[in-house]
């Protein structure tokens, strides 16, 4: 194994070097910004920046909104993408058109997608017309807290395709023969799902869960494009806080907020990782 690793090293080094140079070093270097006061003397202030940021009501609002949005969007994305992937998997070999076209929103530029969304959810747009046709009242989607709904829908629409592809490839990689053997042995659909499908799909599911949360945490440009730097309270995310701090040239607060959020995300992913291991053990009948 050692020999194999040594052989692989030349191939890994360029990528690792890039990762170190553009991610690792800045990540570590940013810590210095977060523990100094940013004045001309640039004095060390310990964890004061972290304390003040943590206590800042706008940081708290942004963090709360970021977590809320991700807890809404990520599970929805996960569930919908799995269901859609399962459906597309059943449609084989037909449905090639749907399998291709499901990725299209992911490939479209965000600004173009946003413009379409703005037209759809405009006060006089098609969505409101449908609502009024169904007997409801028009809603000002683009102003106020109602903007959350178009943002969530946009997130789902844009990211669904990629997650579907991941699930689909996981489903398609399960050998058909396993299902055939199971059927021959008299296993029910439920048994097959829990004994064959899920254990083999869990690693991909974990990946999709990670991707969903990462994408959800990154919801910002849609809100910024429509609501600006200071949208209504329910839409003000942590990214807004960090962006505004950056524009105010307060790099200390930006880095402190970013590291605290990174810590929260690491904890979350740690939790997901543990959940994955537990789920796999249970599905494989271990422990």
């Amino acid at each position: 194994m050692y020999k194999k690793f040594r052989q692989a090293l030349p191939f890994l080094l360029p990528g690792m070097a890039g990762l170190l140079l553009f991610y690792g070093i800045p990540f570590i270097g940013g810590i210095w910004y977060s523990v100094t006061d940013g004045s001309v003397k640039n004095e060390f202030v310990g964890l004061n920046n972290y304390t003040s940021v943590w206590q800042n009501p706008m940081f708290q609002l942004g963090l709360r909104n970021a977590l809320e949005l991700s807890l809404i969007c990520a599970p929805l994305l996960f569930l919908l993408s799995f269901l859609l992937a399962a459906g597309l998997h059943r449609m084989r070999p037909a449905g090639a058109f749907f399998r291709s076209s499901v990725l299209m929103p992911y490939l479209m530029p965000s600004s173009a997608v946003l413009i379409i969304w703005l037209l759809w959810f405009d006060y006089g747009g098609p969505v409101n017309r449908i609502l009024t046709a169904l007997g409801g009242q028009r809603i000002d989607w683009l102003l106020g807290a109602e903007l959350r709904i178009p943002v969530i829908l946009l997130f789902l629409w844009k990211n669904l395709g990629f997650c579907v592809i991941v699930f689909l490839s996981a489903l398609q990689s399960i050998p058909e023969s396993l299902y055939e053997y199971a059927t021959l042995e008299g296993a029910s659909f439920r048994k097959q799902t829990f004994s064959i499908t899920l254990p083999l799909v869990v690693p991909s599911a974990f990946l999709v869960a990670i991707l969903s949360f990462v994408s959800a945490f990154r919801i910002f440009k849609e809100i910024y494009f429509i609501g600006g730097a200071y949208p209504k309270d329910p839409l003000y995310t942590l990214q807004n806080y960090m962006s505004n701090m950056y524009n105010k040239l307060n790099y200390q607060n930006v880095t402190a907020a970013a590291y605290m959020f990174a810590l929260i995300v690491f904890l979350l992913f740690g939790l997901l990782f543990l959940s994955q291991r537990t789920a796999l053990k249970r599905l494989n009948g271990e422990g």
């Binding site: 003040s52 800042n56 009501p57 706008m58 200071y230 209504k232 309270d233 003000y236 806080y241 505004n244 701090m245 105010k248 307060n250 607060n253």
Partner: peptide, 12 residues
């Protein structure tokens, strides 16, 4: 006002 209050709460 809503924007100004947000800006002030963010601090500098």
């Amino acid at each position: 006002d809503s924007k100004v209050q947000m800006m002030r709460l963010e601090g500098n």
